[in-house]
């Protein structure tokens, strides 16, 4: 696994979200991918425990199509987001020829007119080679204040 390519992909993924290039973003994920933001610390799975996000590609498609829907009323005044990433690093011991995990602490801001929400946490990208392309099989986001009462989070971390 090429470390530079893996790190570049993590930066690129965040940039696509910030620029609302959702179709390109969607294509970064494998067909069996999950986008997961657990609700508790040490949460073993996304099935028998509720999560903030636990989305397969079908749900991600619903989400990005909804953001462009003329009657997405909560987005009549659109939201924007900004990721600020710390240098992504390969997790030790996980590097194989075709798979790796990249760990990236981040700050994330989401704004909608006069409101701004700031969140922070650590993202883990599980990357695989599929037909010569590096893609995301799992993006797991461990939000620092995942146990807090939270307002609407409308964009994607």
């Amino acid at each position: 696994m090429n470390e530079t390519a893996a790190v570049e992909l993590v930066y690129h993924e965040a940039r696509l979200l910030d620029e609302k290039r959702f179709d390109e973003w969607y294509e970064l994920f494998t067909d069996d991918a999950r986008y997961w933001m657990p609700l508790t610390r040490g949460q073993p799975d996304g099935e028998t425990h509720t999560s903030l996000f636990y989305e397969d590609k079908l749900l991600l498609k619903v989400r990005i199509d909804r953001l462009r829907h003329p009657n997405a009323f909560s987005q009549q005044q659109p939201s924007f987001c900004q990721h600020v990433l710390q240098q992504p690093c390969l997790e030790g011991g996980t590097v194989g020829p075709d798979v790796c995990i990249v760990r990236t602490p981040f700050f994330y801001a989401e704004s909608q007119l006069d409101r701004q929400l700031i969140l922070t946490g650590v993202a883990f990208h599980h990357l695989v080679h599929v037909e010569g392309r590096l893609r995301i099989r799992l993006k797991k986001i461990e939000l620092l204040n995942r146990d807090a009462a939270l307002p609407s989070i409308q964009m994607l971390l």
């Binding site: 933001m37 099935e47 028998t48 425990h49 509720t50 999560s51 903030l52 996000f53 636990y54 619903v62 989400r63 909804r66 997405a72 009323f73 909560s74 987005q75 939270l150 307002p151 609407s152 989070i153 409308q154």
Partner: peptide, 29 residues
């Protein structure tokens, strides 16, 4: 069966979470 727990946690996440597309529009109203 545990599948029923998975069904309700899924529903809660889809409809009632701070990240819910359904919840966003309810709260907007």
């Amino acid at each position: 069966p545990d599948e029923l727990l998975a069904r309700t946690t899924t529903y809660s996440r889809l409809i009632n979470a701070p990240t819910s597309m359904v919840g966003h529009d309810d709260l907007h109203c």
